[in-house]
Nucleic acid binder design. Structure first.
Lengths: 204, 204
DNA sequence: ATAATAGTGTCTTTCAGACAGTATGAT
DNA sequence: ATCATACTGTCTGAAAGACACTATTAT
C-alpha cells in the first residue's frame, strides 16, 4: 500500500515465454521439499522478496490450455500482504516493479485476470475481516487502521462508528505506554490479538 | 438438502487406495477435452450424477505428500449444489451415499478436511448470497427460501424482516399466476432473476 | 366456521452516521 | 495561545426484530 493505492510487485520476465513482459512472481512445486502448495508459495515468496511470517492466503487455481503458450497448465495462486514497514526492505531485495493493483498495465499470461481476482478478493475481505491490519506495521493507531480499511474498501468510513465497531470486535489490544509520534496529539498504538486473519459476522 | 440437513454424496471406493471407504467423487483432468478445471468438475459431475447446469464453484486446492498413499498430489476441489427437485433423479443415477455434510462419518484421504472447508464456505456464503436459492427448485416460495437460508446459516430468521430484505435486494421475480399447492393458503412462486450466484453487501 | 400458512403494517429497539465538544501534544 | 490530530459523547435517522393483524385457501 502506498498513499491510497494498493501496489502489486511484478517481475519483468527474462526467460521465455513473454520475455520482457511483466508477470506475477511464481515457481514450480518441489514435491521433495514443499509440504503443500502454500509451502511452495511461501518458499518462492522468501526467495523473491525475503519475506517470511506474513499473511499469505490461497486465492484460487487458474487453469486451461491458452494461459501459457507452452500448453495446458494450472496455477495455484496465493497472495501475500507486505506490511508497510517491510516494504523498503523488500523493494531493495527484489527487482520488482510496483504497479497499482487496480490498474496494473499490460501483463503476461492470464495475469490480468488473476490480478482482477486478487483485487476483488481483497476488496471483499477488507470489509469483514482484519485483513487491512496486515498491511500495517505490527503496531498501529486506530487512524492508521481506519485509513487502511478505507483504501482497501475504496470508501470513507465514519470515524466514531469505526472506533465503536473495532472496540466491539475485540480484535486489538493496546500496547501499554506506546504512542505514535505525530505533529499533533500522539495516538495510542494497538496490535492484533490474534496472529491470523479474523473474519467478522458483519461488515466494518 | 433434506429436512434441516445438508447432505453430501460420497462414493464407496472399489479401486485402491482405500477400497471400501467413502470418498468424494473425483476424476483426473483431461487436457484434451477440459478447457479448465471447472470443465473437468462439470464433466465428472455429469458422468457421476447426470447433473448439468447447476451451481458449481471452485472451493480451493488441497495438496501435499500425505493426503494420498500414492504420493504427493494436488486436488482442485469444486462443490456443486443439487436442486431439491433434481435429487431423486440424481440418487437414482448414481450409487452415492448421502451423508450429513456436518457429520459425514469416516471418509478416505483428507476428505474430512475438505468437507469441513465446504461446510464453512457454504455457511459463510449463505449469509450474504443467493446460494440458498440454488438448493431449491427453480420456482419457490418465500417461505421455502427462508427455510433454506435458515438451514444453511444454521439460525432462525425473522420472517417479515426476511421478506423486506429479499424485496430490497431485488434478486427475485414473481412467476405470474403461479402459486404453490398447500394445505393452507397458497403462496406466490418466485424465481431468481439472474442465473448465477449473487453476492450481497450485507448479510440477510 | 376453523385450521393453517401467506403476507402486511406498525411499534420498538438497536445500530450506524453526523457532529459537536473535549483532550493532548507540537509549535 | 493556536494548530493539528486523537478521542468521546450524544443526537438523529435508518434498519432490524417483534408481533399483531389481515388474507386466502383446505377441510
Amino acid at each position: 500500500m502506498k498513499g491510497d493505492l494498493v501496489l502489486v510487485g511484478l517481475l519483468t520476465r527474462d526467460q521465455p515465454p513473454h520475455v520482457g513482459e511483466r508477470a506475477l512472481p511464481g515457481g514450480y512445486v518441489h514435491i521433495d521439499k514443499d509440504s503443500d502448495t502454500e509451502a511452495t508459495a511461501r518458499r518462492v515468496l522468501k526467495e523473491k522478496t525475503g519475506l517470511t511470517g506474513v499473511l499469505c492466503e490461497q486465492l484460487a487455481t487458474f487453469s486451461g490450455p491458452e494461459r501459457d503458450p507452452r500448453g495446458w497448465s494450472a496455477s495455484v495462486v496465493y497472495y501475500a500482504v507486505i506490511p508497510e514497514d517491510a516494504f523498503a526492505e523488500v523493494a531493495e531485495h527484489a527487482p520488482l516493479d510496483w504497479v497499482p493493483l487496480g490498474n496494473p498495465g499490460r501483463v503476461a499470461f492470464d495475469h490480468a485476470r488473476v490480478l482482477t481476482a486478487v483485487a476483488d478478493r481483497i476488496r471483499a475481505r477488507a470489509a469483514y475481516s482484519s485483513l487491512p491490519a496486515w498491511f500495517l506495521a505490527r503496531q498501529f493507531t486506530l487512524t492508521d487502521l481506519r485509513r487502511s480499511y478505507e483504501v482497501l474498501i475504496g470508501a470513507p468510513l465514519n470515524d466514531s462508528a469505526f472506533r465503536r465497531k473495532i472496540n466491539e470486535l475485540d480484535m486489538l489490544e493496546p500496547v501499554e505506554g506506546a504512542k505514535s509520534k505525530s505533529t499533533a496529539r500522539p495516538a495510542q498504538l494497538y496490535r492484533l490479538k490474534e496472529p491470523r486473519l479474523t473474519l467478522f459476522d458483519r461488515t466494518i
